[in-house]
Design a binder for these strands. Sequence first.
DNA 1: CGAAATTTTGAGACCCGTCAAGCGGAGTGG
DNA 2: CCACTCCGCTTGACGGGTCTCAAAATTTCG
Lengths: 249, 249
Amino acid sequence: MPYIPTGNLTPLPDEHPCATCPVRPITICRGLDAPTLAGMRSLGTMQRLKPEQSVFHEGDPAKRVFMVTNGSLKLYTLLADGRRQITGFMFPGDFLGVSIDEEYAFTVEALEDTELWWFSREAFDRFISEHPQVERELYRLAAHELAEAQRQMVLLGRKAAAERLASFFLSLLERNERASGVQETNFDLPMSRIDIADYLGLTKETVSRMLAHLRNRGLIRLQAQDRVQILDRIGLRSMAEGESAEVGE
Amino acid sequence: MPYIPTGNLTPLPDEHPCATCPVRPITICRGLDAPTLAGMRSLGTMQRLKPEQSVFHEGDPAKRVFMVTNGSLKLYTLLADGRRQITGFMFPGDFLGVSIDEEYAFTVEALEDTELWWFSREAFDRFISEHPQVERELYRLAAHELAEAQRQMVLLGRKAAAERLASFFLSLLERNERASGVQETNFDLPMSRIDIADYLGLTKETVSRMLAHLRNRGLIRLQAQDRVQILDRIGLRSMAEGESAEVGE
DNA sequence: CGAAATTTTGAGACCCGTCAAGCGGAGTGG
DNA sequence: CCACTCCGCTTGACGGGTCTCAAAATTTCG
C-alpha cells in the first residue's frame, strides 16, 4: 500500500455519512456584542461537556446554533481512511452557526470541560428578525472567519513545519490577548499533540520535534506540558513568516 | 540556506505592505439571484481586464466590491520570501465583497480576458439597505465560501499530491455543471500549471507528474493543454477521497 | 518558421512521515 | 510513600513522497 502522507490515523466511527453532501455550516468567532449575547442566551439552553464529548458529528442534520461560554473545542473532518484535519478550535465567546438547514460538514468535540449554549434554528431565526443588526454582524463575523481560513490555507500549503508551529503559537497568543485585552507572554494548550498535528497538517512526532526546535532556539519555553511561555516574540514572528531561514543554524 | 518546501518562488513586488493588518475581505461565490444581480449592476461600473492584470493588491484599502461577469481570476497571498498560496479562483457569477473598511488580505489577478463590475462600498451599503434580504443572502454565501475553505484545508493538510489534483479537477467539473445545469465531462483550465500548484500546495513539476499519473490510470485525458476530459468520474472521485490507494499500481 | 515561454521528464536531495523504543507524569493499589 | 501501569509525549533510525535543479519537449506567438 502506497505512502499516504498523513500519519496518526483516527479510528473511524462504524458508519459516517460523509461524501458529497452540500454543506453549509459556518463557524463564527470572537465578536457578538454583549446585549446580543445576552439576548441569545435568554433563548438558549446551557450544555456542559466532558473532554472528548462531541456536540455533533459530521453529517448530522444542522438544526442548532451554538455559543461557547467556557472551555474549548475542536472542529474536524475525517477522510474515508481515517486521516483527520482539524479546521479550527473554539474558545469562550466563539459562535457556531449555520446559514440554512443542511448537514454539519464537520464534527465538534470538547477538548476539556466545556460549557456552551445552544438554541434551535427557529429560535435563532426569530431572534434575528427581532434584531436586524445581527444579520450584518453575522456577515462581519463570517468574513473574519474566512480571512482566518485563508491564513490557514497559506500555512498548510506553503509553510514548513517549524513555521507552522510558530504561527500557531502566535495565533493562540494573540487570541488570548484579544480576549484579555492585555499583553501576554504565556498561554495554555488545551489540545493534545495529535490535535495540534491534525490542525497543522503534520504528525505528532513532527510537532514534538519542532517544539524542541523552537525551544533550542530560545524562542519558547514549556512551563508545563500544556503551557507555553514566549521568550522571543520577535524571533517567533520571523520564524512564523519564514524569515529566519537566513539565520545561521 | 535550509530547505523551504515550496518551490517556484514568485518575484516579490518592490514593496508590499503585508504583515499584521487586521483583515476583513471576503469572497462570495455562486448564488446571488437574478434581480439582485441586476440591481447591483445598475449601480456599478464595468471593468475589463487583460491576463495578469490585477484588480487590487494585498494591502490596498478595501473600498470596492466586485462581481465577475466574464473570464476568471485568481486570489493569492505572498509570503515575505515569495512563496505564494492561491486561496481561490473566481468565475462568472462570483462575488467579492468586504464586510467593513479594511485592507484587502490578498491580491486578485485576471487569468484571461475578464470582465467584472465594481461599485463603491457606499453604493453597496445603500443597495443593501434597500434590499434587506440581501444581507441574509450574503451571510448564506459567506457560509458556503467557508465550507469550501474547510474542504481546501483538508486537501492541503491531509491529501497526497494525486488526490489533490483529482479533487481539484472534480471541483472544477462540478462548478461547471452547477453553472450550466447539465452533466459535463470536459472543462477548461484557464490557469497555468504554476497557478494550479500554488493552489494545491505543490510545485509545477509535481502537478505535471500527477497529471501524467491520472492520465496513465485512464482517469482523464487532455484534449488540449488547457482542457481536461474526464474519462472515469467514479475512479477520479475515489482517487480524490483517497480510496484508490488499495488498487494495484 | 524561429524565439520565448511553458510544460514535461529525469536525477538526486531532503523534509517529514513511519515505525519503534524510551521517557515521564498521573492515577492506582499495596 | 513507593511500585506499577497507563498513556501521552519525546527521541531515534530509516524510508518515501515531493521538492530542487536541470534539460528536453512542447506550445505559444510574433
